[in-house]
Design a protein around this nucleic acid. Sequence first.
DNA 1: TTGCTAGGTGAACGCTCGTTCACCTATGAT
DNA 2: ATCATAGGTGAACGAGCGTTCACCTAGCAA
Lengths: 189, 189
Amino acid sequence: MSIEHYQSKIISFYEKNRRMPSYGEIAVLLGFKSKNAVSKVVDKLIEIGALDKDSQGRLVPTSVFGEVRMLGVVEAGIPTLAEEAAEMISIDQFLIKNRDHTYVLTVKGDSMIDAGIRDGDLVVAEHGRTAKEGDIVIAEVDGGWTMKYLRNKNGTTYLEPANKSYRPIFAEESLNIGAVVTGIIRKYR
Amino acid sequence: MSIEHYQSKIISFYEKNRRMPSYGEIAVLLGFKSKNAVSKVVDKLIEIGALDKDSQGRLVPTSVFGEVRMLGVVEAGIPTLAEEAAEMISIDQFLIKNRDHTYVLTVKGDSMIDAGIRDGDLVVAEHGRTAKEGDIVIAEVDGGWTMKYLRNKNGTTYLEPANKSYRPIFAEESLNIGAVVTGIIRKYR
DNA sequence: TTGCTAGGTGAACGCTCGTTCACCTATGAT
DNA sequence: ATCATAGGTGAACGAGCGTTCACCTAGCAA
């Protein structure tokens, strides 16, 4: 079995169990009968940078699952294998500040299309944050939920779609801000 | 110090070090001098579901960092604390299939604005995947990199912007597909 | 054919782990 | 005034950890 295969088995364990396997567990994982074999394999994996040990000498994955190479700008294109020195980011950490108050919702309809938010997109929304004029908010207006721009003109608060074929919404009875949209996620295919 | 505070200190350690702290490390973290105190606190945290132990009796976080409540549709609004039974998703796992071949790039310009991709957005692009007609691709055309729709008409492959003020691009010399765009990420504020 | 090496076994080692004793306070209820 | 209890200390424990022995073996080079 190749050494890359070894790494992916160990990382799979980490992703599944949220911790690194012990040497004994690695032995089972890779089909060894001795921890010494594991020790040698792990040393080699560390040498090639496929795994790490932290300052306490404990095994940790090189990068968090989900971290991705972050490159500059589209114009720069895709780097070759030779010149990879890109910064790594975690999309989760990038988008989510306060996990306990953050929700993901699916967008329905085209009322925010001019803001670049399309039917089927996911919106990341943070609950319990103060909404400012111009924020995209998820709000309850007269009993129904919707996502729109929050506007304020002459002391009147109302909701404005990002689509010329829709009209601004003025609440007749109630307007409650449920959450402020902090991010958009779209997946192709 | 409150028990929630204890949890967040432990989870912070996990996020930073990619592993759970040992009881000794937790003692330092929380300012205890005895591991017994840690043992009691951890038991309580497990009881309230703030932490977990796996089948081997090892400490693991309840949910992976970055997982977020996934709700139905914008129309449904934000759930109250009482009726929370939402599915959890990891944005990373949702967007990224093959981490080794995935890159994140920053979008410059407005040439894809009608596809809902705006200046400053991040695009998730997968390298080494076969591009189909209609895919959004990052391509090198006559020496410069750009992101456009991949089109094919009468056997001629060309790039088409999603903005009426731009013209389709036909390669004079070379057209190399660098990566296929698999997702979009936008962050507000 | 011989000897070296990479890659494995199995046992033993000390160390650190999480657990569990007995015990020590403050604090608040009775 | 007293007592129970929540929440801490400090020491001791066995278990399992990662490491490191000596040793085995197949494959390749000389």
